[in-house]
Amino acid sequence: MMPESDTRQSDPSASRIGAPVVELRGVSKRFGSLEVLRDVSVKFRRGETTVIIGASGAGKSVILKHIVSLLKPDSGEVHCRGERIDTMTERELVAVRTHFGFLFQMGALFDSLTVAQNVAFPLVEHTQRAASDIAKTVSEKLRMVGLDGLQEKKPAQLSGGQRKRVGLARAIALDPEIILYDEPTTGLDPIRSDIINELILKLQRELNVTSIVVTHDMASVRKIGDRVVMLHEGKFIFDGSPEEMETSDVKIVRQFVEGRAEDEQLAGIRMKGKP
């Protein structure tokens, strides 16, 4: 069996990865006195899978929300498919947003609707397809995430991981060009995580989807990432391939790769042991 990185290298990635489709230019964002993003600039290219890593609370989810203009930057610009979107009205944004799929960190399923209605939601809102056609697409998308047959359940009856996967099925329902995944494998068992990783790869290979993945899961970074960026204290402090990440000598990146905390970070829990 060939290692994953080899299959990717055999892929002519130079032609697969195209021009930037999403771009943040000098974006700053603060919530009250908390400065989350400081003058962040980054480009995401067509067909490329970019993984965003960073400490909990670093602002990764905030970045994703800026990309679909759910949050507006305090200063700076957000461009998407050649248009500046941070100054658009909600009405103008509709056309832009239908090109996106967004998997929310907590799933964000509509709890008054069934699983099937949740996944069908973008199809019902943005297409004129017949009900039987929609039902077929819904069951196909649910099969992709391993949940076909749960159509009539309510989100409250599902486990956390199942909700996440329904959210993923909903995000890909319209076959979007750009998919934003906020921690797609968190809360899933290792086998299921691997299936989701394969799904992300498959969508990228077959539909040439541009993916932006926020994750804490180093196994999936290595498996799906074409490029890794790391957010730390409101800035991107690392930008490179997963291979470069492995050999990086930036301290905080090393700690992420090795999954190891420094002595001073452990001081808080050591104190308790000693009088």
Partner: peptide, 9 residues
């Protein structure tokens, strides 16, 4: 937010 992200007001 999910509604907005899916382009429904």
């Amino acid at each position: 937010d999910a509604l907005r992200a899916m382009g429904s007001d």
